[in-house]
Nucleic acid binder design. Structure first.
Ligand SMILES: [Mn+2]
Ligand SMILES: [Mn+2]
Ligand SMILES: [Zn+2]
Ligand SMILES: [Zn+2]
Lengths: 138, 138
DNA sequence: CACGGGTTTAGAATTAGTCTAAGCATAGAT
DNA sequence: ATCTATGCTTAGACTAATTCTAAACCCGTG
């Protein structure tokens, strides 16, 4: 932790600023698939005067620059995911929380047979309950 | 076409009305995965005085009764799907249109190996381009 | 120190969806 | 045939998520 986020942003063509580093330091290290509202509330703890517009701007900018991915799995909520590599998702039906499933944990076959669909990417969305064993990181 | 939608609704525990039959006759027969706004505009052509609230109410009611499914795949738009059986989805990156992939066209393996995740359902979301062959029904 | 480009800000605007309260339709009772 | 209760429909108000706007701000360069 405590990486040099200003440097990281610069490397990805994002001009660094205190606000952007604050957003990045949270959103690029969490596994909780936060909404923009969640990002805002987390970042405000350490940077109380940051505005909502800056949070949205920064999240969209990081997404355009490939540091972040955003997707909508439930309801009307866009969530942000710093895991930009291929992976699948598990949604806990009880809590709505989203967990990553490593790419290699599942295999999808017969994708070549899709006829008129030319596949460029895909992922599996799994829904269910978390087994009762104590939950660890998600 | 021109099925008895009032009868169909009754069979599913939905008290029929002219508005509900109008919504049902469109949304239960289309394959275009429409948004609520799209449903409203289509239904208004044949039933110009129907209100937005009635369209939303009916779509939510049909969903509760199991005649319709709703999901969010892209952007912030909930779409409605009269195909309530298991199936996968293909999203055309160019147009955003959503197409059904029959359940048996794909196979997902190793779902039993997901450890702490207890799977109750899943589906594959595939994205790509539609091959140039003339498009048929989606 | 002034300039200028990019960044941040608060709040207005927009969009999707829900809620409200009044009016309407109709099945059943008389 | 009329009455009535229940449920349906309606317009518009409201809410929540997100984007837009325009002014203020920051900071490196001249
Ligand atoms: Mn966005
Ligand atoms: Mn809904
Ligand atoms: Zn993820
Ligand atoms: Zn479908």
């Amino acid at each position: 932790m405590n990486r040099d986020f200003a440097g990281l942003l610069k490397e990805h063509g994002v001009q660094p600023s205190a606000q952007r580093a604050a957003v990045a330091s949270y959103v690029l290290t969490t596994a909780e698939h936060p909404t923009a509202e969640t990002v805002w509330s987390r970042v405000k703890k350490h940077f109380p005067m940051i505005s909502r517009a800056t949070v949205y701007n920064t999240l969209n900018l990081l997404t355009r620059k490939g540091l972040l991915r955003q997707f909508v799995l439930v309801d009307g909520k866009t969530v942000f995911d710093a895991n930009v590599g291929n992976h699948h998702h598990f949604i806990d039906k009880k809590t709505g929380r989203i967990y990553d499933i490593p790419w290699d944990a599942l295999e999808v076959s017969r994708l070549e047979s899709l006829g008129r669909f030319e596949v460029s990417d895909y992922h599996v969305v799994v829904r269910g309950r978390l087994k009762s064993s104590a939950r660890r990181r998600g």
